[in-house]
């Protein structure tokens, strides 16, 4: 069982895929979150992320442990980037590998959905003429 949890400057999906490979796994499922160019028809120049790293790593560990307890997984990866990211760049990657595909598919969905709800990471959307902290206001 390999568990990789990290906050990084740049995400390299190839490296993450390699880390998920396992002789007992018949499937690897990876989700990559990327910068989308438009929010409500407004053009996004980029996103800027910051984190409370010490706590983020603890929360990521809770999520990984919960997934490991719930599904039979061989490897789990949760990695989030910080700093400025441009359109199409990866900002988050989660993945799991397991003997059969249902476990890694379900685990992958759980990893990203829970990360978005609990891990202390904040994103600022940068438009041409303003920038906005996402979800800050009702």
């Amino acid at each position: 069982m390999i568990k990789i949890l990290s906050i990084v400057d740049t995400i390299d999906p190839g490296t993450v895929y390699a880390a998920l490979a396992h002789p007992k796994s018949g499937g690897i499922c990876v989700f990559v979150g990327t910068v989308r160019e438009f929010t409500d028809e407004q053009q996004v120049v980029g996103l800027e992320f910051e984190t409370y790293e010490k706590m983020a790593l603890k929360e990521m560990d809770k999520i990984a442990e919960e997934a490991i307890a719930k599904w039979q997984l061989n490897n789990v990866v949760i990695q989030h980037a910080v700093g400025k990211k441009g359109v199409m760049e990866p900002v988050v990657i989660v993945g799991a590998s397991s003997a059969h595909r249902p476990e890694c598919f379900e685990a992958c969905r759980f990893l990203i959905d829970t990360l978005k709800a609990t891990v202390p990471i904040w994103k600022k959307e940068m438009f041409k003429d303003k920038s906005v902290w996402v979800s800050a206001h009702p």
Binding site: F49, H80, V91, V92, I112, T118, I121, K123, W133, S135
Partner: peptide, 10 residues
């Protein structure tokens, strides 16, 4: 002690 506004990772 840390103040945590609405998180928005991902």
């Amino acid at each position: 002690v840390a103040i945590i506004p609405p998180v928005s990772g991902g």
